[in-house]
């Protein structure tokens, strides 16, 4: 925290110091943080407006001051993560989760319905050194979260919108309606209707400006479930356009497999324990 009198969510008055922003990493691939660096045109204004501190490596954490805003990337997969996120929360005035990992547990949450010990014994030469939780979970499962930025990775525009709203003291515009609304606003041809390509856009939260349908691909659901995701109805339609149940189940089992609406949709097709990823 800089000088007193600055609340990142309140009206900005004459500032005596810049608000501080920290970036924290948990189990993730760094893609979302790269989005921050990808804000080439804005990075100058950004670093003038805020004081940015990065804490990328778990070992280097020094949670010894308060930050106005913490951006948290990654999911909680170890006991140490679970402990550390509490410290980060305590040191943050506002905590913003960034990306599918931080909001729903990420693709690594596939293990939530599998046997982790079996995985570690296959992957690592010395599985006895691996200390990991049975599950990968989002930050909100552990501490209160003030704002969520969805996506794998997050959208640059949404990140800038969130930060500029924080600085201006207004509510950020992060719509929770479907990707379809953005897709139609972009004037795209609907890949599901016009090509029979499976698309999760109708049940996925907007924010990417319909990136995938804009280049003729179906949405993979990387922004997670939209506000009133009717996955059962979409499943029926995907079947009607000829998608097989295994592929539908897989499409719900990616970046946001642990988001309740997508998990339910996947489980409705293949309940846990069935050999869904066998060699069929």
């Amino acid at each position: 925290m800089g000088q007193s009198g600055i609340d990142a969510w309140g009206a900005r008055t004459v500032t005596t110091s810049r608000p501080t922003l920290a970036v924290w990493k948990f189990s993730s691939c760094d893609g979302c943080q790269l989005t921050l660096l990808d804000c080439e045109d804005e990075i100058l204004g950004l670093s003038e407006a805020i004081d940015i501190a990065y804490f990328l490596e778990a070992g280097h954490d020094r949670v010894d001051q308060m930050y106005d805003v913490s951006l948290v990337e990654g999911s909680i997969t170890t006991a140490h993560d679970a402990e550390r996120i509490r410290e980060v929360r305590a040191a943050s005035r506002k905590l913003v989760t960034i990306g599918a990992c931080a909001t729903s547990g990420g693709i690594q949450a596939l293990r939530n319905s599998a046997d982790v010990q079996e995985f570690t014994s296959i992957v690592y030469a010395h599985p006895e050194f691996i200390k990991t939780l049975e599950t990968s979970t989002g930050i909100a499962d552990h501490v209160p979260v003030d704002l969520e930025l969805r996506g794998c990775p997050i959208s640059r525009t949404q990140l800038l919108e969130a930060i500029s709203a924080l600085l201006a003291g207004r509510t950020p515009r992060l719509p929770s309606y479907s990707v379809c609304q953005e897709c139609k606003q972009a004037g795209n041809a609907c890949v599901l209707v016009a090509s029979g390509t499976p698309c999760l856009g109708p049940v996925t939260q907007a924010g990417c400006h319909s990136l995938c349908p804009s280049i003729g691909r179906g949405c993979f659901g990387c922004f997670g479930p939209s506000e009133s995701a009717n996955t059962a109805a979409l499943t029926e339609q995907l079947r009607r356009v000829g998608t097989n149940d295994r592929d539908i189940e897989r499409s719900f089992s990616t970046f946001n497999v642990n988001a309740p609406e997508f998990r339910t949709a996947a489980l409705a097709l293949y309940p846990i324990q069935s050999p869904r990823r066998g060699s069929e």
């Binding site: 309606y177 479907s178 379809c180 139609k184 606003q185 109708p202 109805a233 029926e236």
Partner: peptide, 10 residues
Amino acid sequence: RCLSCGNCTM
């Protein structure tokens, strides 16, 4: 059956 997707209105 409705996805609340908004395609119809748009």
